[in-house]
Nucleic acid binder design. Structure first.
Lengths: 221, 221
DNA sequence: GATACCAAATTGGGATACCAAGATGGTGCC
DNA sequence: GGCACCATCTTGGTATCCCAATTTGGTATC
């Protein structure tokens, strides 16, 4: 494999996994030595991650994007628009049997499942659901939005009650979709997105001090 | 200014202005000599334009993205989702006086206005309208979608009747927005987007031969 | 002790040299 | 004459070098 994609993937994983803290400064030369690549692939990776909103320019120099409460609010609105549109499309399809695959995905998580897996499946639920619509643009929009939310969502995964509720809401959305009840499915999804945002923003606002203590930059709304 | 942005801007302009035909092969070295830059900024430009969907990888090597009828259909659905969401947000704002600025933008076009200007203002109408929502993600989504549509829209601008209709629809949308009538504004915008797509796809399907004769790759739906 | 200023190191942006893989075209054999 | 094969050229990917700008640390002065 070309090293370029490798650097990009590894760096993205470190950022999403909070191994590099939000707000941390990045130097091309550090990345270079850390992954044993040279600067060209490093720059390519940074340019790509910039369009994903994971890193940004800080004058001269690169910074891991801080967690931004205002951004979380705006993403929720954006998600509502694109995810609901995708879901309505899916409900209008003749063959919606693919929802079963997503259902099975949800079922694969139980008490023994590690946090990381819940985190991943929780995102993939929305991404795969959007993929069913068959609209590439809606799909990419959802995938990109979930990527941006990914780091903040680590908080949600620490809360058992929040997880249980999210999973129940996911199942309800799938049930309505299976029946082709677009209005109900859309309503449930909207409620889920808004609720998810509220829980996230609340716990982020509470944990803000703790996060800052760990060196994570959190920008207020 | 750094040369990087210059290369990116100039290359984007050549692609959007059809100075480089859809489907045409691009070599980094040609771009290098064409703009008097070296490969580093050329690379950066290509990576950025790739995320905008204007260029793509063709195995080894770069290609200007062909005009894709299937993509136009999907973009219309995507636009409907994000533009309507943005417009509803705007309608819910207390101060919607900014629509006047957009109205003035429309009025700046008359019989003496060159085609290029109609083309640009027609896109900016949708982009600026989305910006009013205050949601950065919806705004960027609309801007990116319009960028992707840009090349195909040159066809619409050649048709006087289509232009007149589009402008009338634009004004109606603004009127409803000014009144804060979200449902009516959303309905008008939806109709406008769908109609615009139909006119575009129809004339593209008709002109396909002519476009191919000019060396423009057009991919069927 | 604080501050202003200067030197040196660091950093991202740009240019260039090198490489491996793929395209191309020409030549020789059948 | 056609086809297969090999030399060559082109191309994107990578590594390295250079440069200007900005940051940084220390020192000298007040």
């Amino acid at each position: 494999m070309s090293q370029m994609q490798s650097v990009e993937k590894q760096l993205r994983q470190m950022i999403l996994g909070l191994e590099i803290g939000p707000g941390e400064k990045l130097t091309e030369r550090w990345i270079e030595s850390r992954f044993g690549a040279s600067r060209t692939p490093v720059r390519a990776a940074l340019l790509r991650l910039e369009t994903e909103g994971l890193v940004g320019r800080d004058g001269r120099g690169w910074t891991v994007s801080p967690i931004n409460l205002a951004e979380l609010e705006q993403i929720a609105v954006y998600r509502d628009a694109v995810e609901v549109a995708a879901l309505r499309l899916t409900c209008s399809l003749a063959d919606r049997s693919a929802v079963d695959v997503i259902e099975a995905m949800l079922e694969s998580c139980d008490n023994d499942t590690p946090r990381e897996e819940w985190h991943r499946v929780g995102m993939d639920f929305h991404i795969e659901l959007a993929r069913l619509s068959g609209n590439e643009f809606l799909f990419r929009a959802v995938r990109d939005a979930m990527t941006r939310l990914s780091r903040a969502r680590w908080l949600e995964v620490r809360d058992e009650a929040a997880l249980a509720r999210a999973w129940a809401e996911h199942r309800a959305i799938l049930a309505a979709t299976r029946l082709g009840d677009a209005d109900e499915a859309a309503r449930l999804l909207s409620v889920h997105i808004v609720g998810s945002r509220d829980r996230l923003v609340t716990s982020l606002a509470n944990d803000r001090r703790g996060l800052r203590a760990r060196g994570f930059a959190v920008v207020a709304a």
